[in-house]
Design a protein around this nucleic acid. Structure first.
Lengths: 193, 193
DNA sequence: TTAACGATGTTGCTTAAACAACGGTGTTGG
DNA sequence: CCAACACCGTTGTTTAAGCAACATCGTTAA
């Protein structure tokens, strides 16, 4: 496994692999039938190098999904990161939207990867919320409390999005987010004061 | 200097450098002001690596021009290579066209690179003609004669194209090529019989 | 059954690429 | 003038990537 994440070669291979995978996804339409061979070949990267970066195909997929998710969030959040309640609203809408779009790309055979993707999203969400809360926490709040809050909120938001995405026709994302925002605001009160 | 030309890493870096240079050319519009620094950075390649592949900027430019020229020829020649008199006509038209287009991209400051580019073109032309003549030579013809013919014809064609490209308005490329073809056909007679 | 096949991981060795550092050479401009 | 600057070209060392070969494990088909 490469030691230095900042090594341009490392970044480039990662980039090439991700790009290659997306191209293949466009063509083949289902994740299951894309082999590590395929990805490496398309990326003009040796298969062994793939395994130098990712433990296995699952680790790669998680990483890929995290990357996509990150990119979408930083694109759709005002000034690129979570800064206030308005940002929080935008964040939630992005999550809802992302989840809906992801479902469109999943064939029945790809169902097995769902948990993987969801874990990646929740993790990223947690990371983001944690950074936000740390930036505006009360001095009185313990680090543990802040972490617990971020974790709780990340799952809460994410789970709500999952639930909604299973039957998006019943309700608009905007409406669901409106309610959710109230709940979350209350949930983070203990930390933000 | 890399040892094995077929190493994918070698091909990739070369590709990246060429691509980077073309992008910079689109933006800056003049070759002179593009530094090795610039090219390497855009290609996400270390500057030292550039020098592992090319002796200097001039060697790179020659290589780049050859590559472009090669690509154009193999695109515009029927079945990708020179096969008959009709192919020869197509070849000559390509050379004329290539030269005309190249002039459009050259600013006064880039004039210094002109000889470089011309040498690259002539060399490639020679290589192509040589392969062709070797394929259809009379058994009686000596290798030296074949080589001399290819060399002569490559300069003849190339020089005519240069001459024409300096004042393309005076005559169409098609017309110039029509005459040239007759001359060249006669020139290669001693070899083809 | 079994043999062929294709995919997954793994390993040891080789080589290309990254990097930092250096000296050299114009060329600005204070 | 000379000092800052930008670019060139080179070197020694470290590390990532390529490659070939191997074992393993399904799946398929003869």
């Amino acid at each position: 496994m490469p030691v230095n994440e900042n090594d341009p070669r490392v970044q480039r291979t990662r980039q090439l692999l991700m790009q290659a995978f997306m191209e293949l996804l466009e063509e083949k339409k289902n994740i299951y039938s894309i082999s590590v061979q395929d990805i490496a070949a398309r990326a003009t990267v040796n298969r062994a190098t793939f395994y130098a970066h990712f433990a296995d195909k699952f680790a790669f997929l998680e990483s890929w999904m995290r990357e996509k998710f990150q990119r979408k969030l930083s694109n759709e959040l005002p000034n690129g990161s979570l800064s206030d309640m308005d940002g929080l609203r935008a964040l939630m809408l992005s999550v809802f939207d992302f989840l809906a779009r992801t479902r469109l790309y999943m064939t029945p055979g790809d169902r097995q990867f769902e948990p993987l993707f969801e874990i990646a999203m929740q993790k990223e969400l947690d990371r983001l919320l944690l950074r936000w809360l740390r930036g505006l926490q009360q001095p009185s709040a313990s680090p543990e409390l802040v972490e617990a809050t971020a974790l709780f909120a990340s799952w809460g938001i994410f789970g709500s999005a999952v639930q909604w995405s299973r039957a998006p026709r019943e309700r608009t994302a905007e409406s669901a987010v409106r309610d959710l925002l109230v709940v979350v605001a209350a949930g983070v009160k203990p930390v933000t004061g």
